[in-house]
């Protein structure tokens, strides 16, 4: 699933997850800020980035056992299943779906995977209404990063379609990067 060169995937795998170490780790005391000693003892529980947890738990024998993050535990799952649209995913976790895809395999019962699908199904209406809304700021606010991307794409398509239906011609415009570069330059000039 993961794209090796994708920046957003790298940012997702930087999220912290709680892990229990199954072996002693000499000289690795700094992984746990509350550990005063130089060595990390077997059985310590601490938060480490997802990328480290992923690679250590896939070793043979596994070095850590990964705990589900708080937002995918029973309590939060109940909230999502009751009404996912009331949750502000931007505040809760920007990479909700992507993180969910990673940790779903640590949940043996498969509840997390079901919750993810269910959440997206309920929230799809929000994405749709945000993409045609004129008051985009309030509509975009509770959406997670990937939902915002979807919305932006939908908005562009919508605009392109209505432009084409209305006039049928497309005026020539400045190239995207050129325009952005000029905008930035102007902002810098104004600051001086």
């Amino acid at each position: 699933m993961a794209n090796y060169l994708s920046i957003s995937d790298i940012l997702v795998s930087n999220e912290k997850v709680t892990c229990k170490f199954l072996h002693d780790l000499p000289k690795m005391g700094y992984l746990d800020p509350s550990c005063p000693e130089e060595d990390l003892k077997e059985g310590t529980t601490t938060d480490i980035p997802l990328w480290l947890a992923e690679s250590l738990s896939s070793r043979r024998p596994p070095l850590v056992s990964v705990d589900l993050p708080k937002i995918f535990k029973e309590t939060y799952r109940e909230i999502f299943n009751a009404d996912a649209c009331t949750v502000d995913l931007h505040k809760l976790n920007q990479h909700f779906y992507e993180l969910g895809c990673y940790v779903a395999k640590y949940d043996i019962k498969g509840e997390v995977a079901k919750t993810l699908i269910n959440t997206f199904r309920q929230r799809f209406r929000m994405i749709l209404s945000a993409s045609v809304s004129t008051d985009s700021m309030t509509a975009l606010q509770p959406l997670s990063a990937s939902e915002r991307d979807r919305t932006a794409t939908a908005m562009n398509t919508e605009k392109a379609l209505s432009g084409w239906l209305k006039r049928g011609d497309c005026p020539l415009t400045t190239a995207n990067m050129v325009a952005n570069h000029r905008k930035r330059k102007r902002a810098e000039m104004e600051m001086l």
Binding site: H23, D24, L25, P26, L31, L63
Partner: peptide, 10 residues
């Protein structure tokens, strides 16, 4: 020191 292999893996 056999226990060092874990650190190496990290």
């Amino acid at each position: 020191n056999k226990s060092l292999w874990t650190t190496v893996q990290v």
